[in-house]
Design a protein around this nucleic acid. Structure first.
Lengths: 166, 166
DNA sequence: CATAGATATTTCAAACTTAAAATATTTGTG
DNA sequence: CACAAATATTTTAAGTTTGAAATATCTATG
């Protein structure tokens, strides 16, 4: 818990919080508000237009970037969700014929998940429409504000980066 | 789907997307990344330190702002989640003794949810700790960047405000 | 006053999500 | 080689979330 003198000028014995702390809380609540609203809109569109869901789209997107496929654990790390979560979503994508599970040479514990041809084709089409949805939802965001937003958010996510083990 | 000439200078017949559209998509992905990461950290802390969850904290926070209590539908609108969702979370908070459901005069369909004394006390304590967690997670966020972030996010959420019915 | 439509909430089924336990397999160490 | 520790994944239980259907109640209109 950050208690620098410079950042916390609360009176002796008081338990108020500093101005900067409150500003950060407001910033967080605003991030939460926007991401909930946008996610809700996109979920609805995914459901109505594609008969699909955001989590499945996210998995397809990750696999589209890695055409040779990814391990379950790589997917889970890339999407920042639990292992067990990925298992269920991949199960459904397999049932839909959009991805396949392939065995890994020399490691029978692991498996590689890869887009099928249908999955690749479906995702390519959906990705364009998805981008247009996002652009419309963010149509008030100018180019310079987009850059500023990305820069600021990066400073936050870098701070909270998982520490690497060397 | 926004297809202004000025914003989309893709060649004839091409289905590429504009630069501004891509910038907005990147911005959205970055928002998503940060909010997932922060939410994960806060969920973990809530679980370990308070033996509770974020959705419950959110309900308590809304009720703490409205000491006279809120209807289920008001809670649901305020938190931007479905009615059925609120039912379940309030059920658990009732079981924990932190909130109560009260009947509404002249409307037997509705009910008011209110913090109990224990709920008020618990939330007041937790809110301070919660704010310090957020401040720490956002410790790289300067005051001016916090202001810029809030301003930019507000333009986005205002655009996507639910249109009112007059 | 009857009753059709509107409103408030709950119930339900399906999907998503997590954390922890269980399984299966591989790797490193004596 | 034996086998303990590490790794990859799945399973499980509990909670969250949605959208739609079901209930219960209220309101307005004839």
């Amino acid at each position: 818990m950050n208690m620098n003198k410079s950042e916390n000028a609360t009176g002796p014995g008081g338990n108020e919080t500093s101005d900067i702390s409150k500003a950060r809380l407001r910033a967080w609540l605003q991030i939460l508000k926007v991401s909930r609203k946008i996610e809700g809109e996109l979920r609805e569109k995914m459901r109505v237009e594609f008969g699909s869901t955001l989590p499945r789209f996210d998995v397809l997107a990750a696999l589209y970037r890695e055409r040779d496929g990814m391990r379950m654990s790589e997917l889970s790390k890339s999407l920042m969700v639990s292992n067990g979560n990925v298992t269920g979503i991949v199960d459904r994508l397999v049932a839909e014929g959009l991805v396949v599970r392939l065995p890994v040479e020399n490691d029978r514990r692991a498996s590689i998940v890869r887009l099928t041809e249908a999955g690749e084709k479906d995702f390519a089409e959906r990705a364009l429409v998805h981008e247009s949805w996002v652009s419309d939802l963010f149509s008030d965001l100018s180019s310079s504000d987009a850059d500023a937003l990305i820069r600021i958010l990066r400073t936050i996510s870098h701070h909270n980066e998982a520490p690497h083990h060397d």
